[in-house]
Design a protein around this nucleic acid. Structure first.
Lengths: 208, 208
DNA sequence: TACAATTAGTTAATTAATTGACAAACAATT
DNA sequence: AATTGTTTGTCAATTAATTAACTAATTGTA
């Protein structure tokens, strides 16, 4: 099924398929052809078929794809089959905003928040207490944390990431404006650069 | 200088160049070769030279690039030459977090926040009052707003975007989990899908 | 049941993106 | 001043990604 090497371009399109299929499912659409999907999602029908066939033949000639089945298949491919335990490091504005975001509905459970600032430690966000960083190692191990969401200051980020890797975290979702580098290539790092996105927008704004 | 058609792949790398060059500038590095830049930024030297030559010959054989000049050139290309006026629509957790983010330092000035919820209207975030949506049209026109940052609920997003386009906004930075579609192709739309990023991370987590 | 229409999966063709190679320009050194 | 080493800009080669074309399976209909 999952064959050798799927390109990054394909992988980054999968969440979009997942999103659109979920919407269709909610709207009671239970069958879709690559052509119809193309019309709403904006990729060519050919690309959609190519993308999906990286993972298996989920469709049926003359029929198309069953929306629910395809949604579940892609969910499986994306690893949305278990609940992942997450923590947030840095409970400032962004950290708190992300704590309030409903990632839980996608299977990402917030198990803890950490900060060095005594002004926020002890506070609770959605039933999760903000704890001191001293407790980080212990909690990662005890609560079997998979993903750490880094919302610290730029300066603290790399050092926090190094610690997290040492404590055995499996993945890091980084919101600070640095590209975190982890020597241990078992640790997955996903950098979200909001500024990069804004500057891209700015580029096109200038072009007009 | 700016020639015909620069590919999206190149454009999306520009902010990263900008980020790294800024860091070098702060560290007192005033000269860099494509090879050295390659080592820190992770693109090949050849790609760096190709990318930059889409916009002009900023380097010098035998020398490399002057960091400050290149930083400024890329800033110019990205449109970071004027201050853009921005507003945030939807003053929930994410909206408030973004209001506290220092985009201002990059030339994006927050000129207003809007919400329909009377529990938040009237509050002030960093000297910016959260106003009722009724005032949206007037403020966009009076304050010459360039960019609207949408942080509403998913359901409100498209309708808000349609209004914004009608009121003459130039660009939309969208944080809701839908792909906003604006008929007027003069309006630039940049969708930030946090969930897509998280699901990509989840994909790689599962692969291990 | 036969037949026309639909549509996935797959291979081939095309286009786009990246990498490699090299001449020309300049810097640094002796 | 001459020479060696460095490094860009650019063109060519290669690799990757996308699109098109086609076959075979299935649906829907007469």
């Amino acid at each position: 099924m999952t064959n050798n090497k799927v390109s990054m371009a394909v992988i980054r399109r999968l969440p979009k398929y997942h999103r659109y299929l979920k919407e269709m499912l909610e709207n009671g659409i239970n069958r879709i052809s690559s052509k119809e999907l193309s019309d709403v999602i904006g990729f060519t029908a050919s690309q959609i078929r190519q993308d999906l066939n990286n993972f298996g033949g989920f469709g049926q000639q003359g029929y198309g794809y069953n929306v629910e089945d395809l949604y579940n298949e892609i969910g499986q491919i994306l690893g949305l089959v278990k609940t992942y335990n997450t923590i947030i490091i840095g409970a400032g504005n962004l950290g708190q905003a992300l704590a309030n975001y409903n990632f839980a509905s996608h299977g990402f459970k917030l198990e803890g928040m950490f900060d060095i600032n005594p002004k926020v430690t002890g506070l609770r966000i959605r039933d999760v207490e903000i704890k001191d960083m001293d407790l980080l190692e212990e909690e990662i191990k005890n609560k079997n944390i998979d993903i750490a969401i880094i919302c610290t200051s730029r300066d603290a980020a790399q050092s926090v990431a190094d610690d997290l890797a040492k404590y055995g975290i499996k993945a890091i979702w980084n919101f600070t404006p640095v590209d975190l580098k982890i020597n241990n290539h078992e640790v997955i790092v996903e950098n979200v650069h909001l500024i990069d996105s804004l500057l891209t927008l700015s580029y096109f704004l200038k072009e007009k």
